[in-house]
Design a protein around this nucleic acid. Structure first.
Lengths: 143, 143
DNA sequence: CCTCTAACCTTGTATTATAATAGGTTTATT
DNA sequence: AATAAACCTATTATAATACAAGGTTAGAGG
């Protein structure tokens, strides 16, 4: 399950993508609009700033803004960053200790296929897609 | 992330599917073969027995066995049962309290699509598929 | 009938993650 | 100088995960 961390991060990114690029949007405003705890959001945004997905500006007229165009962000990178990993099982995490049952595991091939599918799904969607979708665009080609 | 509960359950089910249908396989044997804590497995198998995916038999020559043919089990039902839900986000769980932001949520449509994809993936694989896969069968049509 | 085996049942517990809250410090702007 | 807002450090309540311990019940075989 994707936790609130990743989901909130995504919603904030879409929120920022919707209010243009010029000017900073203060956390207070985002938190109120999205109905998310201000203090909790602060923690989440700190990560996004650290990883350069957002730029933070202090003082009056300060706030946060995107560092790239919406279509240059994939949902995958945002989730992976905030959730720590997108891996569906522990043994497929990047930091996993090698599993001795790799060769004989009856389920590993399935998990690998699943992981690939998930990765392709999330890395195939950009922030711009989500903004459009909300504006009534029929983003996708269900498959 | 799928926890050990679901992953172990799956591995046990495949294990049982491999040792034919006649006779019961004791937990001790499964736990040793799979390298899983016996006591923890007990808890997991209890659920599977309660939901009639397995039959348990006490006493000498007792153990566990499948109640159906391997191809009559989907991976989806096994995971959903042991994990509690397959939903990728809290607001899509069956027991979720209705979210007031449903209409305006910029990410919900994406989560719905993702959920559908995950559901189709896991409900499209049977125990029999996993057994074959392990025996060198090239189960699938990568897409 | 007695013993053994193995499922079943109840309880406890260490560790970790989640989802925050509280309060102080620094840096821009007016 | 005052104010706004990001930034930083620490704490915490709740829940889930992944077990472990020990006792109870029900079949099978001698």
């Amino acid at each position: 399950m994707i936790s609130t961390k990743g989901r909130y991060a995504l919603r904030v990114m879409v929120d920022l993508a919707q209010r243009d690029m010029d000017g900073y949007v203060p956390l207070d405003e985002i938190a109120n609009r999205q109905g998310i705890s201000k203090k909790y959001l602060e923690i989440i945004l700190k990560t996004l700033v650290a990883k350069k997905l957002l730029k933070g500006m202090r003082g009056k007229n300060g706030g946060y803004r995107l560092t790239r165009a919406p279509k240059e962000y994939t949902v995958g990178e945002i989730l992976e960053l905030t959730e720590g990993t997108l891996a569906s099982v522990a043994c497929l995490r990047a930091d996993a200790e090698p599993c001795g049952r790799r060769q004989e595991c009856s389920t590993l091939p399935m998990w690998v296929r699943f992981d690939r599918m998930v990765h392709n799904f999330f890395y195939g969607i950009t922030l711009a897609d989500l903004v459009e979708e909300e504006n009534g665009g029929s983003m996708g080609q269900e498959k």
